[in-house]
Design a protein around this nucleic acid. Sequence first.
DNA 1: ACTGTTTAGGTGTGCGTGCAACAAACTAAG
DNA 2: CTTAGTTTGTTGCACGCACACCTAAACAGT
Lengths: 154, 154
Amino acid sequence: MTLLRDERLTAEELVVWRMLQRAQVRIARHLEAELLVAHDLPLASYDVLSQLAEAPERRLRMNDLAGRVLLSRSGLTRLIDRLQRDGLVNREACESDARGLFAVLTDAGVARLAEATPTYLRGVRAHFLDALGPDEIGQVRELVARLTGATGAP
Amino acid sequence: MTLLRDERLTAEELVVWRMLQRAQVRIARHLEAELLVAHDLPLASYDVLSQLAEAPERRLRMNDLAGRVLLSRSGLTRLIDRLQRDGLVNREACESDARGLFAVLTDAGVARLAEATPTYLRGVRAHFLDALGPDEIGQVRELVARLTGATGAP
DNA sequence: ACTGTTTAGGTGTGCGTGCAACAAACTAAG
DNA sequence: CTTAGTTTGTTGCACGCACACCTAAACAGT
């Protein structure tokens, strides 16, 4: 009977997981669509730009950056290629390690990020946060902290 | 000063959103990897199979199915192509509407789903639920219900 | 120094997806 | 019945990603 209870519990939890997954995908799509029409900037690019903006000296090693934006190294290579082509990011060599490269946010990149950020924040607020009470945000963050701690790095 | 508080709140909320996003992506990847190595079944395929299994008569119109698995119609067309090639799903015409097609789960599809489901459930449990207390699951579900209600269909 | 191992980043290739355009079938108005 | 408009599913195309492999540089032990 504990077996039965466990299975019923699993079915219940399963629904939660699926809902969360669907909600996440939907929100991300709304966000990407809005960023795309308003600033011609994919969500992944926005992520990279904002990660760089928060980093010291606006620069990050390719590998570190790939980890932060949850992208494969090869995927990041191409993404940085595009951003560099658009003048938003530059590659700069690392002095202490000749095989290292920094992705550096350019002034144009800063400007573009600043331009897109209101859209991004408005989107997050509209699609995600306005559905939550302020206290629930704390709960979610705590919850997610456990998630990230429990899963570890892939 | 209210302005200041709002901005700080936004920064706080932003962190939550990002963490949730990252956690979601990571968990989905773990799940997909496990399904792939154990049953050679991508996560999207598993989603389709389980949606069909839950549907009456194990069949769903392409359009409906596309909506449920959060895929574009064209994307679903190709995915069903693959599943049909593997014998897990069949296409059947709709009598009342000659331009409609049903995706129908085959017996092999049922078997494959049954085979993969333990892996899936174990994965969800390991990566998602074990990090949560049982009461938090209720909170999350309630929360996600608001999210899906607030965003509506894309 | 010298050879084997590890790490950083980039390239070739294949896969899966969405968008736009399309053909077929339903629907509605005349 | 005819014609215009809508809906359903598929196809051409391009894009973005990951995997496997490759080169160059750093590091380790002898």
